[in-house]
Write a protein that binds this DNA or RNA. Sequence first.
DNA 1: CGCAATTGAGTTGTGCGCAACCTATGTGTG
DNA 2: CACACATAGGTTGCGCACAACTCAATTGCG
Lengths: 144, 144
Amino acid sequence: MEESTGLEQMICFELYAASRAMTGLYRPALDALGITYPQYAALRVIWHRGRITVRDLGAALRLDSGTLSPLLKRLEHQGLIRRERGTHDERVVWISPTDAGTDLEHRVADLPERLACALDLSAEEFQTLQHLLGRIRGAATRTI
Amino acid sequence: MEESTGLEQMICFELYAASRAMTGLYRPALDALGITYPQYAALRVIWHRGRITVRDLGAALRLDSGTLSPLLKRLEHQGLIRRERGTHDERVVWISPTDAGTDLEHRVADLPERLACALDLSAEEFQTLQHLLGRIRGAATRTI
DNA sequence: CGCAATTGAGTTGTGCGCAACCTATGTGTG
DNA sequence: CACACATAGGTTGCGCACAACTCAATTGCG
């Protein structure tokens, strides 16, 4: 029996700790590929869309340009993505995976499933969690 | 209908986004008090225990000394906590709230309830979420 | 006792997250 | 057309997280 810390009843803390625990679960696999967890999340969206603006990527990840600009610069330096100024509207920057980036996609194809297994949740629990997290995110972002 | 991003099915991403949304929900209230969310989490434990070593605080928050040392130094500079070298074992540092720190506790007493309300979850959903997050954290930390 | 191994805290370096601000480009209105 | 305004992306600064490391104090074992 652990000593009480007064945090047990705080959903916010559970969320914060669970989120960090989860990225820790991804870390060994991602370290081997030379990318971080937020970089991986960004790549998932880029792979899925094929070609996306920094703005839309930020909307998908809920991250602003202050976070994304340096992150994308690092992915570009690693040769995983390409950045091109839009020709029609020169304010926008289009992101797309390079060949090396697409290659990486195939090497991590089984990662989500492997790690979902590690969590040992039933399909039903999984769905419940997803629903509740969505509602939290909705409520929290709406209030702002 | 939003465009698909390929992240919908990834519980890890929902967790990551929900956690950030939640700290964003706390931000206005904590900004007014001049503390950050991790500082607030640390203070909750310190208030609850009255007196705690850096080691035990780290175990409660799942944070290492690399994160806690500078965080505690900032709380000390703000006059909210005291740091004292242990007399019996001079390696350990004991953390305790100052009068100003205890005062702050009273001013945030209603914060968890206020923010729990903003989430608009039923008591049952709340409990389900707590249980599932606990299992995730357990599974993720056990695997390491 | 003497010395290797362990432990507790701190430091350094890297990469987020986010606020605040900047610049360039585009849009809308009179 | 001119000028205010909005928008896209970038920069700076600060505070986490976490790995890797240092150092001092303590413990354990022959």
